[in-house]
Design a protein around this nucleic acid. Structure first.
Lengths: 209, 209
DNA sequence: TCATAGTTGTTAAATTTTTGACACATTGAC
DNA sequence: GTCAATGTGTCAAAAATTTAACAACTATGA
């Protein structure tokens, strides 16, 4: 068994991926940890250490091949396969996710939105239908869904999340402002707590004064 | 000068705040680090250590007074003052922020949205007007704005951010998928990179298999 | 009033994360 | 072909973070 890679490293990988993408757009073919370090404002040592967790992608005296490294990181992060997303809660935030082309380019495709508001039902976002939440069981039996994004009030989040898990969803992108209490602990949860982010910003404003 | 508090601690504070709020709702008056530890799934030691960075809020043999601690953390995070927010980019995400009552309860009030799309101009979200971006200078001269939320395509983000900073905005909540290149380094930036979050989720899905 | 159980603040140890250093491989100029 | 310059992978040191341990203090019930 290979050794566990820390979440600290995982959190940094998307940023490497982003910078490598920009380098590709600029037509840069190779880059050293030192040059990348200067761009990203992190130490070259950290870059080498991080990448080495997954394999020796570089070459002494040459550096890293930008395109190759970009693709390898993509594979590591699972971007070589399509992930289907359903969005629970078709308010502004849910619609924003469905609308965001960037996710699709990364292989994350929204295949359906769900809400309890009949007024929204029947509408489509970029061709993606908004459906009634009580039809979710049928939908999931017919579609292959990897991720459920929860963009709904926190009061129902636990119940809905557990229902989804029971129906086979094994990953939740949680925008509701609670820590989900899931019965099945094998489910992968990624929280996006915007209020928390805002509070951190607020703290740093005070600090900077 | 008091010693610097690490961002690792700051990241955890909003979560404490949230749990304390829930305890208040439940009518709980006091709590020990041990009981809180059990609820939050972090070590009691970490809770005590974290809180102690800001002062001795507890009492031996008693624990922490929930309401008092809640208010103290609120003050630490700057929630005792109102923060006015402008949102640049009045798409779904921008509108979601303007619509989210939760932020307002925490003292973060959206006072205006801006966009370059004339079709949106004139609309209002919960009474908050959407205005043309080229009127921002006038708006900022007349309103006290603390935070600018950037919910717009990354291509223009740098330019707009620097313009805002020049006009006196000193904190940016950045949803654009770039690391802002700001000329003034005293500006506080908090990034929300949703694609990064999604990639982490994706990685953890693979890992869990 | 006293003894016991409970609980913090704080110091020290353990662990994790980051940074530094360098042997050794590769490139590119001449 | 030679050699200086470049640059990785890796090991060790340093720094930061987390956990454990405990002395000192408080609440509570007999």
């Amino acid at each position: 068994m290979s050794k566990e890679i820390s979440q600290a490293v995982i959190r940094r990988m998307p940023r490497y991926y982003r910078y490598l993408g920009e380098l590709i757009d600029e037509g840069v073919e190779r880059i050293s940890s030192n040059d990348l370090s200067a761009r990203m404002k992190v130490t070259a040592s950290q870059i080498r250490q991080d990448l080495n967790n997954f394999g020796g992608f570089g070459q002494q005296g040459y550096g890293y091949n930008v395109k190759y490294l970009y693709e390898e990181i993509g594979k590591i992060m699972g971007l070589d396969e399509q992930h289907n997303i359903i969005v629970i809660g078709a308010g502004n935030l849910g619609q924003a996710i469905a609308n965001y082309m960037k996710f699709e380019k990364l292989g994350f495709v929204t295949v359906g939105l769900f809400d309890i508001d009949p007024a929204l039902c029947g509408k489509t976002i970029r061709g993606i239908p908004i459906m009634m939440l009580d039809t979710i069981e049928e939908f999931l039996s017919e579609h292959d869904v990897d991720i459920a994004a929860l963009t709904m009030p926190k009061s129902k989040a636990d119940a809905v999340a557990n229902q989804l898990v029971k129906l086979g969803v094994h990953a939740i992108w949680n925008f509701a402002h609670v820590d989900l209490d899931l019965l099945d602990e094998n489910v992968v949860v990624e929280n996006v707590h915007l209020s928390d982010s805002l509070m951190q910003l607020s703290y740093n404003i005070i600090k900077s004064k």
